[in-house]
Nucleic acid binder design. Structure first.
Length: 876
DNA sequence: CGATCCCGCCACATT
DNA sequence: AATGTGGCGGGATCG
């Protein structure tokens, strides 16, 4: 009988209801007789099909009304009862119904009740919009699905969209981490920036003539879109980045679409986007083919996304009446301005990040990282932002200027590439998290965040994040370095010197160390040579750019792209730089930085800070308070930020002076600047590497080489106790050759003097310093070593150990990196160091972590970051 | 009848 | 092979 019924009934609602009811019952009204309703429907069928039908009719009719008004319900009830009364069975049911009518109704209405939007609201209701920093909420898909009474598939729809906005991140299979909206503004900001690049023109165009859109759309679309963006974005297929894994394209769709969709809103002047326009824009694919079905499908997806966004309160449904008629559209009702955004972000304690970071360490998806970065970068973002805006405006308003256009295109391309790279990387790594390119872009983090928190707090964070990132950082940092050159402004591409540094943070006690990076070029070069790096390095680089872009300014964005592809960079970079100038110093746009961020992403859920790649000019080094966060960021940026924001440390000028002095006095050491702890930094002292001076110095000979270590932060106390802090940075030109040096440089050694807390830390490339005597000429020995490629470095390191001078470092290192006991290979060393930094005491469980790191180290540079996520520990 | 969009098949990815 | 993900589009509902 049932079967029959179903055959008839089943078809539609009724059947659905049944299943639904069951599920719902779980969620909504557990138990009871919930089932009843279902039965009712079914049963009637058996005997008198008709009656049942009637009931259905009634119910269906009533249901809607019922929802709206209970009154109607009442009315209906009687009716229903009557009908039911006819059938005995029905009567019983009726009885039930009466009792459960409400429930019935609730459950009944089905379609709407089941809507994705509603489901999303339920989902969101389960988690705090602004979770405490410390608490990490993990979301189990299965659990949520069962709780909400829906199939898992639906949860994916929600989570994917949330993930695109960084509200959640995937931690593992079936596991997501809830981040809340803390980073939402940053994410939106990033999307906005990215959107301007990609869709600025388009949107403008559309808005002017929505009507015409259809027509022109095609034209327009071709014009605008092709250039800058879409294609790349859409097509992940590009071989470059992802040479390695290519494959899955799944990642793209919903998440990317979601980000793009949001971008459209952010870019739109009216903040209103019609579905058809969005669908058209979002159909990047090759041309117009398949329009119909594709378009239709796209729209369907957009509805899905829109439902989630609506639930988030970011958009609302509206109708645009145009000449042609009324078209469905959505209006952005979320935040429009993303100043520093620090508000929300800053508000949160940095700690939150760190915590999660540690756990995730390896797993953390890029996205997360990105978020972390964002936070970190905040300061930078300011700078970048401003610049950025200027740039943007130019772009949007004045697409004409060749330079800008180029930049734009370039940027977009870069972005796309970056995205692609990411994906690929993800694939490689296995982390799906990355998603859209945008996310990468978003990296820009806000430094504010970081800054605010006390350094201590920061530390923990750093460590957590750092670990994973560390490796990558080294790499990324290198890439970033390019930017440095830019900073130099020297016209040429040479990266020369800036201090790029990748830095390392070292929390032990309160010390932080940053290592300066090296040159990007070198890095790249080195990477490949080094070995592992090869593909991955590229990838990482690619990834980085976006982040950088976001952080800095649009300009950066452009630059980032460059980093992605080696080829492009030089010319473009130059262009970019020229155009933008001020920033130029800041960063060369080189996307490189961003890559770092990406790479680093591994950090804790949210926290992951990436080193963003800021390269700051050493000249203006300021002590970065937020060492932790900063660590993620490029030193320069940090410094700048600090300066601007905090003045705390020292005045920049003073800092510079110090540097110069140092340099003079200590040719080698110069790199650091010591910042006294002023108010803000009570306990910390910062050393910034000054040396890098630009280009002239080391770079001249070879751009790359240079040095690294930019800065070291040391707690004041520590300093006192501390004999020396050395930065490896070596600037030597020599190094340039090997570049690998960079790696070397990157690697820092930390040594803790006997006391962990107070002990001084040494960071630096191999060469660097001996803890005790900074002045010492260690350099010679070291430098050479540094110069060498990583391998060389390794050797050096080994040597160092042997040599008295060197010894100090290594030894210390060993201590720190217990796990790494093997100081050996250069690679290992580096990583270890990084790790050490990252991991620092605070965060982790250190030992284990360290060990893991060690393993990773070997791999290190190359894809380190990604890998970290996955399972760095393993080994290699 | 067009706008929405639920539902779940099924391919691909990951374990 | 099993399970996780999520693209995709038929077709039911809504308005």
């Amino acid at each position: 009988e049932n079967i029959f019924d179903r055959s008839r009934m089943a078809p539609k609602t009724p059947i659905k209801n049944e299943p639904v009811d069951l599920s719902k019952q779980k969620g909504c009204t557990p138990e009871r007789n919930p089932i009843t309703p279902v039965k009712l429907v079914d049963r009637p069928q058996p005997d008198p099909w008709t009656p049942t039908a009637n009931l259905k009719m009634l119910v269906s009719a009533a249901s809607p009304d019922m929802r709206d008004r209970e009154k109607k319900k009442e009315l209906f009830r009687p009716i229903e009862n009557c009908e039911q009364s006819d059938t005995p069975d029905s009567l019983q049911y009726d009885m039930v119904d009466d009792s459960t009518v409400d429930e019935f109704e609730k459950q009944r209405p089905s379609r709407k009740q089941k809507s994705l939007g509603l489901l999303c609201q339920k989902f969101l209701a389960r988690y705090p919009s602004y979770p405490l920093s410390a608490e990490k909420t993990t979301i189990s898909l299965d659990e949520v699905a069962s709780t909400l009474g829906v199939e898992r598939r639906r949860i994916y729809d929600i989570v994917n969209v949330l993930e695109s906005l960084h509200l959640v991140s995937r931690v593992a299979k079936n596991q997501y981490c809830w981040h809340g909206r803390h980073n939402l503004s940053q994410t939106l900001k990033m999307l906005q920036e990215a959107g301007e690049l990609q869709y600025g023109e388009l949107m403008t165009f559309f808005q002017h003539k929505e009507q015409d859109l259809d027509y022109k759309f095609g034209e327009r679309k071709k014009e605008a879109i092709p250039d800058s963006q879409d294609t790349p974005l859409l097509d992940f297929s590009e071989p470059d980045c992802s040479s390695a894994s290519a494959n899955s394209r799944k990642d793209k769709s919903l998440r990317i679409m979601s980000q793009k969709f949001v971008m459209l809103f952010l870019v739109s002047k009216t903040k209103i986007v019609t579905l058809d326009v969005a669908a058209k824009i979002l159909i990047e694919e090759t041309q117009d083919t398949v329009d119909q079905s594709k378009f239709k499908t796209k729209v369907r997806r957009l509805y899905d996304i829109a439902n989630v966004l609506t639930s988030l309160g970011l958009i609302k449904k509206v109708h645009v009446t145009e000449e042609r008629g009324r078209k469905p559209a959505f209006k952005w009702i979320g935040p429009v301005e993303f100043p520093g955004n620090t508000d929300e972000l800053s508000g949160h304690s940095p700690t939150s990040d760190p915590l999660p970071g540690t756990q995730r360490g390896a797993h953390v998806p890029y996205q997360i990282c990105a978020t972390g970065k964002q936070k970190f970068t905040r300061h930078a973002s300011f700078n970048g932002t401003q610049l950025f805006e200027g740039t943007k405006r130019k772009v949007s308003s004045e697409p004409n200027s060749p330079c800008q256009e180029r930049q734009d295109e370039y940027c977009s391309k870069m972005i796309n590439l970056a995205a692609v790279c990411r994906q690929k990387i993800e694939e490689d790594t296995g982390n799906p998290s990355i998603t859209s390119p945008l996310s990468i872009l978003s990296l820009p983090g806000d430094s504010d965040f970081c800054v605010k928190p006390l350094p201590q707090a920061v530390f923990p964070v750093v460590p957590a994040d750092m670990p994973s990132p560390s490796l990558p950082n080294g790499i990324s940092s290198q890439t970033l370095h390019h930017s440095v050159p830019a900073a130099c402004k020297t016209e040429n591409e040479k990266p020369t010197m800036l201090p790029n540094q990748p830095f390392l943070c070292f929390p032990s006690s309160s010390l932080f160390m940053f290592c300066g990076g090296l040159q990007e070029n070198n890095l790249r070069e080195t990477l490949p040579t080094t070995g592992d790096m090869g593909n991955k390095s590229e990838e990482s680089q690619a990834a980085v750019p976006p982040a950088a872009c976001q952080k800095r300014s649009s300009q950066k964005c452009t630059s980032p792209s460059a980093p992605v592809y080696d080829e492009e960079p030089a010319a473009k970079k130059q262009i970019v730089e020229q155009s933008d100038v001020p920033l130029s110093l800041v960063v060369p746009k080189k996307p490189f930085e961003s890559p770092k961020a990406e790479s680093t992403p591994g950090s804790g859920c949210t926290s992951a800070v990436h080193l963003e790649d800021f390269n700051l000019d050493l000249t203006s080094p300021v002590a970065p308070k937020a060492a932790d966060k900063e660590s993620t960021k490029p030193l320069d940026s940090q410094e700048k930020e600090k300066q601007s924001q905090n003045k705390d440390p020292d005045e920049p000028s003073s800092g510079e002076e110090h540097i110069s002095k140092e340099n003079a006095s200590q040719p080698f050491l110069p790199q650091y600047l010591y910042v006294q702890p002023t108010a803000g930094l009570s306990s910390f002292n910062f050393l910034v590497s000054a040396n890098q001076a630009p280009g002239a110095i080391s770079l001249a000979a070879s751009p790359l080489p240079s040095l690294s270590v930019p800065c070291v932060m040391v707690p004041s106390a520590a300093l006192a106790s501390f004999p020396l802090v050395c930065s490896p940075a070596v600037t030597n030109p020599l190094s340039s050759v090997p570049d690998g040096s960079f790696s070397a440089t990157t690697s820092m050694n930390l040594s803790m003097s006997g006391l962990a807390s107070t002990t001084p830390v040494f960071i630096g490339t191999t060469a660097v310093v001996t803890p005790k005597v900074s002045s010492t000429p260690l350099v010679d020995p070291q430098q050479p070593a540094l110069h060498l490629s990583p391998v060389v470095v390794r050797s050096c390191s080994a040597v160092k150990l042997d040599s008295p001078v060197c010894m100090g470092h290594p030894v210390t290192l060993l201590k720190l990196q217990q796990p790494s006991s093997t100081p050996l290979t250069p690679k290992s060393i580096r990583p270890a160091r990084h790790e050490a930094f990252f991991k620092t005491p605070g965060s982790l469980g250190d030992n284990a972590a360290w060990k893991k790191n060690e393993g990773n180290q070997t791999r290190n540079a190359s894809s380190a970051q990604r890998r970290l996520e996955i399972s760095s520990t393993s080994t290699d």
